[in-house]
Design a protein around this nucleic acid. Structure first.
Lengths: 416, 416
DNA sequence: CCCTATTTGTTCAGTGATTGGATTAAAGGG
DNA sequence: CCCTTTAATCCAATCACTGAACAAATAGGG
């Protein structure tokens, strides 16, 4: 967990001022506490990091004063010596608010510093016929209830992340969300007037908007310790991918990476709405699978569609099984290219694919074994997303708290 | 957005000791001097970085004492005030030795801190029938001459990088170099006994072995300022790719990224030696192009093959032109997938493709325009490699000096 | 020609954070 | 009960940056 241990200093290429020293060590020590599987002692952190025990004590004092870290009773331990006081992330410290707008549901959740989901609410509704303004109004309601829940739990929300199924630019403008029918929707502007989600708090925007597939990948990274590099494939109506490398989400030059749906699978294949031919989406997108299975699912909500297919496949429907096998093969071909190019060792099937993983996994794995160069001496593992459809909300909320863990000085210096 | 952007720091997860402050500021100041287009003054650096002039002066003194930076006469400047003394990278400081073993040549070059190539030697010979031991023996000769040249020029070699057309692991073991016929060749072990290329100097290995496509991409990054994110496609017998993002080479989870040649282009296409079907290599690899052009080029040295094709195409040979158009289309299809996935804005045609760029560029650009989602509002540029076939050697030598610029403390603390 | 404004680079006391050693705290073992 | 062991803290010393004052070098104006 908490692989995002990169030290994000205030000024990347900028100068390293005197205070940066403490700033960096706060991050280092907090990072160790977060990464440890059992509450470490100050002495253990000192031995681990190479810092002096004196320094670690001073740093930890700051962290405790800022409610980021709490002391726990010493573990029963064998051997002589004064027992250590364990350190762990505080459960009553800052928490993150995750929000999601998708085609057929709205969701909100609160995740605390330890990564625990403290509140979770999903509101099913077909959002396609609804205007962005109306959708965001409903979202604000959900966010209000989440905030009330956080108040009752005695935790403070430090920020919020909104997951959207589309291309988002650096300012929170949703350039294009085809399946929602959104185009150039300026979310921050539409939310002006809803204080908790507006403006900046100590220089950090109160709400960040991000692509759903990216956040889902972060959620998986968070939820499954051990894998720090993987490709998270999110199969909905479109097919998005989140690429995580060494615990860092890879966003591309302009932040629009992950368009796996339009990787060509067969240059002579059927035309795609993107203008190309034979894109993966025309083989393994939701509509393609539904069509091949003999269902005309244009009017089905996305989540329902995946479940319907899973039910039919489980019942042994041959057309559905064939459709899933074909989709899995196409997916495997496309993913094999990515794995060859990026040298990944794990592929996670998420979104709607998580529901269908039982039938998609075999053909995907077959193609990977056949096509990946390094598969012979280091096989590629394929698994379903652990969080399933909740990856994106939880990942968004988790991103907020992980940001704090990565740069605690921002939170500590907040109310000077 | 931009939550988890990686940060380049000397010690990512490590503790920040007291000396790290100076260590980091040495890197910051030297980085500014290296990045500036005209020699900046101490005062300009201070204003730029936010450091005090006093601090910058102290740091610069260290850099000058370590022969990394030199003062130059002030530029003729208008306006009042004491004239500034300009700072630039020292040309007589440490330099990098680049070495390359390829199918039909050996090469060595010396690049100084400023990025200038101070020595360059290419030795053409078909290396396929030669044993690894013999090939490395010849390489040592070349390296010796390069070292002698460096001595004459009064510069010290700080390290060496060897470019190899194959998969290399972290210890310099060449796992597989199919076109050389190498398999599990332990380069450092075979070079034991040749002092300048053996062992470690101050903890840094004297020789690093890396993939040719990776180093070529680094060379291009170095040579063409302005593009910091691109895909460098290196077309030889195999097709390798170097991915550069924000000025950083992307190596993949285990360092074996870039196998573009086995990205599937048509799942029903001809079988490939990798075991898959319809890999890019079977359409745009050198042998495929030669075959389509009606040449049986199995015995042609790689470089010669590209030149022969270029000559025939220039002469108007229709079969060759059609072959190149088909290869370019396949290349465009594969690259479009990569660009969609990683959100890149520049594609560089390198290696043998550099020679053929005039004919490959149009079909590649056509496919990209048709298939890349974001092409409509931000076109992808396609260009030939600036360094052509020398990218890899120069890139390897450049990697050595850039390593010093990125972490000058290693060089400064070398002979304490 | 001299004087002033202006910009550059250096010197020096001051401060913040880490260091290393000594000290106190809290157990277990003989 | 004393000694050993490990944990955490205290304190003087050190290192690097800060801020301000100062010296150096030049252009421009009277």
């Amino acid at each position: 967990m908490w692989h995002c241990q990169a030290v994000t200093s205030a000024n990347i290429a900028g100068a390293v001022r005197q205070g940066s020293l403490r700033e960096l060590n706060l991050a280092v020590v907090l990072g160790r506490i977060a990464a440890a599987d059992r509450p470490p002692s100050r002495a253990a952190i000192a031995a681990d990091t190479g810092l002096t025990r004196a320094t670690v004590s001073a740093v930890v004092d700051d962290l405790i004063a800022g409610r980021l870290v709490a002391e726990v009773d010493p573990e029963p331990r064998t051997g002589a010596g004064r027992p250590a006081r364990g350190l762990r992330l505080a459960a009553d410290g800052p928490a993150g608010l995750g929000l999601e707008i998708n085609v057929d549901y709205l969701a909100a959740c609160v995740v605390d510093l330890t990564g625990t989901v403290r509140h979770h609410e999903v509101c099913r509704a077909d959002l396609r016929p609804v205007s962005p303004t109306e959708a965001l109004a409903r979202l604000v309601e959900l966010a209000g209830r989440a905030r009330a829940a956080a108040d009752r739990l005695g935790i403070t929300l430090a920020g919020a992340t909104l997951a959207v199924p589309g291309l988002v630019d650096a300012h929170g403008l949703v350039r294009l969300a085809p399946n929602l029918g959104w185009r150039d929707v300026d979310v921050p502007a539409l939310l002006a007037g809803h204080p908790p989600l507006t403006g900046t708090v100590d220089g950090v925007p109160a709400l960040t908007v991000d692509n759903e597939a990216n956040l889902a990948a972060l959620g998986e990274l968070h939820a499954v310790p051990g894998t720090s590099s993987f490709l998270h494939v999110s199969g909905e109506i479109g097919i998005g991918a989140g690429i995580v490398l060494d615990g860092t989400l890879f966003r591309g030059a302009r932040g629009w990476s992950g368009e796996l749906g339009h990787v060509p699978v067969d240059p002579a294949g059927p035309g795609c709405r993107c203008g190309g031919r034979g894109c993966l989406e025309t083989y393994a997108g939701q509509e393609a699978i539904l069509g091949a299975a003999g269902l005309s699912g244009a009017d089905l909500p996305a989540d329902t569609a995946a479940r319907r297919l899973a039910d039919l496949a489980a019942a042994g429907d041959p057309a559905t099984r064939a459709a899933l096998r074909a989709a899995g093969t196409a997916l495997g071909v496309a993913v094999a290219g990515v794995v060859n190019l990026l040298d990944l060792d794990t592929v996670v099937l998420g979104g709607g694919y998580a529901t269908l993983a039982r039938w998609l996994r075999p053909p995907v794995a077959t193609e990977l074994t056949a096509r990946v160069l390094t598969a012979a001496w280091s096989p590629v593992s394929v698994r379903a997303a652990a969080l399933g459809a909740e990856s994106a909300v939880v990942g968004g909320a988790g991103a907020v708290v992980r940001q704090i863990v990565a740069r605690p000085s921002g939170w500590l210096g907040r109310r000077q």
